[in-house]
């Protein structure tokens, strides 16, 4: 039909090109490291803080970075800060695990029965907008001035976001995977444990992270409000006490500890869990 010529080419050898593959320079490679960039930023913030603190020269308002670090070190050395942190973390673990357990019960009920679904949807819609701290006065009346009240408000802060996320995760599991599970003869709790929970794990993990963050904030706030729980105060109490004695560097040291524990859990524990599970399985990038 047409008289257009056919065109053929031989690919050229690689030696003809300028660059096929070349290592980046040392600086380029350093700049590509996220943690290094963040560390530099942190150092910068510390320097600005130090300069501003010295310029202000008022320890009662803003102590310098070095004073805060000294207070932090002193607190760690004397064991007070570690002791207070441990008290907080212990309460947190009890509250968090209770919340996780209750969330598991609620969502399993919700996924197996229609009544359970309706119940879960109604109560999460009702309670999730309610800040845990708002329940503290009630908790004090019901459980008294002690660990019971703390756990009550923490369960409240963990339970709803975790249940909501887990339930959403369960519902998003593809019908094909459910059918595969039933094909193996699984049903009821077996199907939930062996198919639904791993398949919904990205959502569950997200729920755990949110729940943890809520619980940690709630705990510190609750401790600040009513301080000593069963004779031994936590980090919130440490801050409150230091403020009353006008030891402002200690207040800052307490805040720094809260940040560090938060970062540790977020970036070490949850990150490791993520890398070992959902990232490895390609369910989250």
């Amino acid at each position: 039909m047409s008289d257009r010529p056919e065109i053929m080419h031989e690919p050229r050898g690689a030696q003809d090109f300028g660059v096929v593959e070349k290592e980046l320079t040392v600086f380029e490679r350093l700049f590509n490291m996220v943690w290094l960039r963040k560390c530099i930023l942190l150092v910068l913030i510390a320097v600005i803080w130090e300069v501003y603190g010295r310029h202000l020269d008022n320890q009662l308002l803003v102590p310098t970075f070095s004073d805060t670090v000294t207070a932090l070190w002193g607190g760690i050395k004397s064991g007070v800060l570690l002791d207070r942190s441990w008290t907080s973390v212990k309460v947190l673990l009890i509250g968090f695990s209770t919340g996780v357990f209750l969330a598991a019960v609620l969502t399993i009920l919700a996924i197996t029965t229609q009544v359970g679904t309706d119940f879960l949807e109604t109560v999460t819609a009702m309670f999730s907008p309610l800040p845990a701290i708002a329940l503290l006065p009630l908790a004090l009346i019901w459980f008294g001035l002690g660990i019971g009240s703390l756990i009550f408000v923490m369960v409240h802060s963990v339970l709803w976001p975790l249940a909501l996320n887990t339930h959403a995760g369960f519902r998003a599991v593809s019908p094909t995977l459910r059918m595969v599970g039933r094909n193996y003869g699984l049903s009821g709790l077996g199907l939930v444990l062996r198919i639904l929970i791993p398949a919904a794990f990205p959502s569950i993990l997200a729920g755990l992270k949110i729940g943890w963050a809520f619980a940690w904030r709630t705990l510190i706030a609750a401790e600040l409000v009513f301080g000593v729980a069963s004779g031994k105060g936590g980090l919130g109490w440490y801050i409150f006490e230091s403020k009353n004695q006008l030891d402002i560097p200690e207040v800052f040291a307490g805040l720094l500890t809260i940040i560090m524990i938060g970062l540790l859990v977020e970036n070490v524990i949850f990150r490791t869990l993520e890398n070992k599970t959902v990232r490895r399985w390609g369910m989250q990038t």
Binding site: T176, G185, I195, P198, F201, T277
Partner: peptide
Amino acid sequence: TRPGPDRMMVFQEFDQLLPW
């Protein structure tokens, strides 16, 4: 009456394998 391993299904969807 119910699903069982004596009748194994192969589906069209690629997500029929357990990703974990």
